[in-house]
Simulated assay, not measured.
Amino acid sequence: MAKTARRPVNRYGNRPTMKDVAARAGVGLKTVSRVVNGEPGVTPDTERRVQEAIDALGFRRNDSARVLRKGRTASIGLVLEDLADPFYGPLSRAVEEVARAHGALLINGSSAEDPERERELALALCARRVDGLVVIPAGDDHRYLQPEIAAGVATVFVDRPAGGIDADVVLSDSFGGASEGVAHLLAHGHRRVGFIGDMPRIHTAAERLRGYRAALEDAGITPQEGWVSLGVTDPDRVARAALTMLSGPEPVTAIFAGNNRVTVTVVRVLTEHPRPVALVGFDDFELADLLSPGVTVVAQDAAQLGRTAALRLFQRLDGTVNRSEQFLLPTRLIARGSGEIRPAV
């Protein structure tokens, strides 16, 4: 039968304390506290001695005592749209890495693009006394969070702004990215460009549609009826929209896809289409570079979105910022071949 590893104990049979670490390292208690909590003011040599004492004794910080002292739970909540969406993987990981660096635990959940579920999840996290929230909004009314924010729950919104309240928000440049993607198609000779996007009430979908229209307007092109389709990103709906745009006497010769889920469905439709059709998608996705041709995309940095939001959250928790701010992160056009297909003569 395997033996259970014994916890480290000091000479009194108790778990090692900061006093034990201080005695072994030959330093004061405050110095140990600074090393344990990552505070400045300790020389590299002293920090090394303290760390060696910590390792030798098997000391572990008592977070329960720290919570009582600071009035925090050392945890933050992350409310995502869909945990299964590849876009949110790097975003979530980046938030978790920042939280870990600040000694906090991350708890996340999915709203499934349902405003009521978002509200229930956010308030459930607040009821468990998280110190802060990072929210990808599903709804457009966040006044329900005002009492929580007033009570000290730091809150930062990502990807879409909050509705009805003044709060920090970190966004990708959806308007600028979409405008650049459509301009790329126009530069390769296309004059009939379709747009398939998400539900119009979603901020990112509306901004990408605005960018699409702006690029066409700059080129002196008025989008025709049937060139634009907004709605759920269900594959059946997207496939029907693409097939409709690709049929008729004057079909589109290029499609701009509003997000990665739309792009994947459009790729499937185009593989069975009899003539070449150009495609640019908003959001990169796995294996996009391995298709033939590779899929040209407007890439946003999901990890940087999460990192920026989490760092802002901990700035709020540390009391170093007061006014709300909007952070707009740039996108990047990655040309791989599908967006460079020219219209058939």
Rank of each mutant, 00 (worst) to 15 (best):
R7K: 14
P8K: 05
R11Y: 01
P16R: 07
A23K: 13
K30S: 15
V32Y: 01
S33Y: 01
P40G: 12
P44L: 10
D45M: 13
E52Q: 12
F59I: 03
R60G: 00
R61F: 00
N62G: 11
N62W: 02
N62I: 08
L68P: 04
R72Q: 12
A74L: 13
V79I: 07
F87S: 02
S92I: 02
A101E: 14
G103D: 07
S111F: 02
L121H: 04
L125H: 04
D141Q: 00
Y144H: 09
Q146H: 02
V158F: 01
V158N: 04
G164H: 01
A167C: 02
D168N: 00
L171K: 07
S172E: 05
D173Y: 10
G181L: 14
H190F: 03
R192S: 08
V193A: 06
P200Y: 08
I221E: 05
I221M: 09
E225K: 10
A239Y: 14
A242I: 09
A254M: 05
I255N: 10
F256V: 13
F256L: 13
N259E: 05
T271Q: 15
P274D: 09
P276V: 04
V280S: 11
F282Q: 06
D284T: 15
F285N: 08
S292M: 10
G294L: 10
V298W: 08
V298R: 11
Q304W: 04
R307N: 04
L313T: 04
F314N: 09
R316T: 03
D318Y: 04
P330R: 13
T331S: 15
R336E: 09
G337L: 08
E340K: 11
V345T: 15
